[in-house]
């Protein structure tokens, strides 16, 4: 498994964990408020910091496990895989954002729009890493 494929696994798992953390926190806050909790800056900041820190730790672990591949540049296959996976992520992001905006037009709930848009960003990233893994394992 190449460094870039391991990186996709690590980032995908971190993004799933981050998404679970964010929405579990929002759900817990909403329970207390008895309505959908508004977006709060500290939660978003904590989410971003945790993602950044975990991704740095994850990449250090990958690099240490196989130092010879740690400085591998993206070759032509890596770039093709990244481009195709990015295409899928863009599609997911576009459809998700249109759905989120459609939801706003029906409910006029700004809090829901924020959480939906933020969630769609997370899902599109997860889709990108999942697509990379699939392309690395199948034919490109």
């Amino acid at each position: 498994m190449s460094f870039h494929e391991k990186s996709a696994w690590v980032m995908g798992l971190i993004m799933i964990a981050g998404m679970a953390f964010y929405f579990r926190t929002v759900a817990a806050m909403s329970e207390g408020l008895e309505q959908l909790a508004p977006p709060v800056l500290p939660l978003v900041v904590v989410y971003i910091v945790v993602i950044v820190v975990l991704s740095i730790i994850g990449h250090i672990v990958i690099a240490v496990s196989r130092p010879s591949e740690a400085d591998d540049m993206m070759d032509e296959r890596d770039k093709l895989v990244a481009a195709r996976a990015g295409n899928i992520a863009g599609l997911v992001l576009g459809i998700g954002l249109i759905s989120a905006l459609g939801g706003y037009l029906i409910n006029y709930d700004g809090n829901q729009l924020f959480h939906a848009a933020f969630g769609v960003l997370m899902v599109s990233q997860i889709a990108e890493y999942a697509a990379r893994i699939v392309y690395y394992r199948a034919e490109v």
Binding site: M1, S2, E5, E69, D72, D75, E76, R77, D78, Y136, A138, E139, V140
Partner: peptide
């Protein structure tokens, strides 16, 4: 100028290299 994994993918027929490669 490619990684070992790309050579493996070429040998297994999972990837067709660029004309340059």
């Amino acid at each position: 100028g490619v990684t070992r994994q790309t050579i493996i993918a070429i040998e297994q027929g999972r990837y067709s290299p660029s004309l340059e490669s």
